[in-house]
Nucleic acid binder design. Sequence first.
DNA 1: CTGGGCGTTCGACATATGTTGAGGTCAAGG
DNA 2: CCTTGACCTCAACATATGTCGAACGCCCAG
Lengths: 138, 138
Amino acid sequence: MLVAVSVDAQVPPGFTLTVGDVAAIAGVAPSAVRFYEQHGLITAHRTAGDQRRFDDVAACRIKVAKVAQRVGLTVREITDVFADLPADPAPEDWARLADVLVAEAEARTAALRSYLDEIRSAGRLCEVDGRLGGNPGR
Amino acid sequence: MLVAVSVDAQVPPGFTLTVGDVAAIAGVAPSAVRFYEQHGLITAHRTAGDQRRFDDVAACRIKVAKVAQRVGLTVREITDVFADLPADPAPEDWARLADVLVAEAEARTAALRSYLDEIRSAGRLCEVDGRLGGNPGR
DNA sequence: CTGGGCGTTCGACATATGTTGAGGTCAAGG
DNA sequence: CCTTGACCTCAACATATGTCGAACGCCCAG
């Protein structure tokens, strides 16, 4: 007789965390966790009673996302980057992810620096490639 | 009696750009220019007819702001950074500004990199234990 | 098997960042 | 002067990122 716990038979093993659990681990509000799931940043399985059950990877994704948001990435962009992350990421997978995110952050910083350098080196502020004196339509 | 020469006497010299001019130069919509003025990112003088007249510095500030937004700074934060910028900035002033902005961008990138490094070196992702018996193909 | 602490959805609210439209005014060219 | 396009304000809408409350359901401990 192997009939035992049939309640969460459809929830894969490892998916034991509730919304509140993930929220506590990731340091965000439960509402935010639902928001991220709605937007595909994380995924959940559902119990027979329609409750979400998360993986610990979900909490990890959220933590990374919060830091990535600080460098200007939108939830949508972060979701896209996460699209390449396997369901059960190995350290190398995290490393690849890190490369992508850091590269993006550095590219944006480089753009900022480059533009500021341009302004600074232009003797008289940034009258760069703008035609002053005309008023063409938009 | 009306005095003809008093029409734009209150608008300082150099403030010749209309909302549309600044918008065209900075590459944003006129509505955005008004928005930035409302939020203190740029300042305008008014003609006798209550129209805004900007300085070319305004367009420059907007251009910088757009790039700074890409590294995660809010309009509020950018406005605060601009608070230290003189009305008529010299190259050194832009240089100081650049230092502040780039430092902030790099700090945020560093935080991201540091956190990702932490995850990667933790081996077992975000300090949480799951089924680490292996990485089943699935 | 029941109580209450979580969970669920849904819609309203909140903030940031703008855009659009209505209704009216200003200013520069003809 | 007078037309016409750009400007003014104000309000509503739009999107991103969440939060909160109501009304209701699930589930674990006693």
